[in-house]
């Protein structure tokens, strides 16, 4: 008779293996690549900060980095401004046609991403907004269009959970509509705002398809740089840029962890 009894935690083994293979090892590799250099002649790999100095001494790279940051922040902000009221309306149960609105936002996601982006560009062109002439505006439109559903969904789920009597309590205690919004509704939906922001900000910075298509290759984002380096076989430099993104994500998560009071029960792997 076998001594090993089936335990529920064994079900986590496939995920554990997956995690190590596709998340932990690649991350370690990125860090290793970012801080090493391979001599093309001797093929010897050594530890070095060359990538760091190379990246930050290049003004084009810095410029691209700042542009990416601006577009990322801008897109996040616009998505929140548009998505927040929509999510609020959706979460109110008294409107009968909520599912139609949800469908309207979900439906474009069923169409292939590249095709959709190209179609958006052509549509804007037909309306008189050429991506070549106004690369930033059309890139922003493309970004917002693409990431809006990702903003609405997390906001919608937090708003559904929000106790409506809190809004009444706030008004009861003397807060007018604006004060109720800023002092009660916004803080209560902060977890949703944070998760919506993280779902929009990072992908925006690292994507390059939308900016390439919409801006007709006049705008480079961080994603473009990584792609460029990898295409040229500069794995170490590319990894370093990827590491910068990783650090930003990490910083964002640490900064928001304290703000997010919601007690999400996240157990360990076992």
């Amino acid at each position: 008779m076998s001594k090993i009894k089936f335990q529920r935690k064994f079900l986590a083994i496939p995920y554990g293996i997956f995690l190590v293979l596709f998340v932990i090892i690649p991350m370690v590799l990125i860090v290793v690549y970012a801080f090493s250099n391979t001599d093309p002649v001797t093929n010897k790999t050594t530890f070095s900060f060359d990538n760091l100095t190379t990246f930050f001494s290049n003004s084009y790279n810095l410029h691209t980095f700042l542009i990416s940051l601006a577009i990322g922040l801008g897109n996040t902000l616009i998505c929140l401004i548009i998505g927040y009221p929509i999510a609020y309306i959706l979460a109110k149960k008294e409107y009968k046609f909520n599912y139609i609105i949800v469908l309207l936002f979900i439906m474009p996601m069923w169409i292939n991403f590249v095709l959709r982006t190209a179609a958006t560009r052509d549509l804007l062109f037909a309306m008189g907004l050429s991506g070549g002439e106004h690369p930033y505006i059309s890139t922003m439109i493309g970004m917002v269009y693409n990431y809006l559903p990702f903003t609405i969904l997390p906001l919608y789920t937090t708003m559904l959970k929000m106790d409506k009597s809190l809004i009444e309590a706030s008004m009861d205690l003397g807060a007018n509509k604006v004060q109720t919004f800023t002092k009660t509704i916004i803080p209560m939906t902060l977890p949703g705002i944070i998760s919506a922001s993280s779902m929009v900000f990072m992908p925006t910075m690292s994507s390059y398809v939308i900016s390439d298509v919409m801006g007709e290759r006049q705008i480079s984002l961080i994603g473009n740089i990584i792609q460029l380096y990898f295409d040229q076989g500069l794995w170490n430099l590319g990894s370093f840029v990827a590491l910068i993104l990783l650090v930003i994500i990490l910083g964002f998560m640490i900064a928001t962890r304290n703000m997010e009071k919601e007690d999400n029960v996240r157990g360990g792997l076992w």
Binding site: D163, S165, L166, E168, A169, S170, M171, D172, L173, G174, A175, N176, T180, K183, T184, P187, M188, L190, K261
Partner: peptide
């Protein structure tokens, strides 16, 4: 409601979970 000099104690308390006890009362 915010212009009426009446206050309500709600059935399910409706305390603001993003604030501590002091801030709830001081609201």
């Amino acid at each position: 409601p915010y212009e009426r000099p009446v206050n309500t104690v709600f059935q399910r308390y409706a305390l603001f979970t993003h604030m501590d006890v002091y801030d709830n009362i001081a609201f």
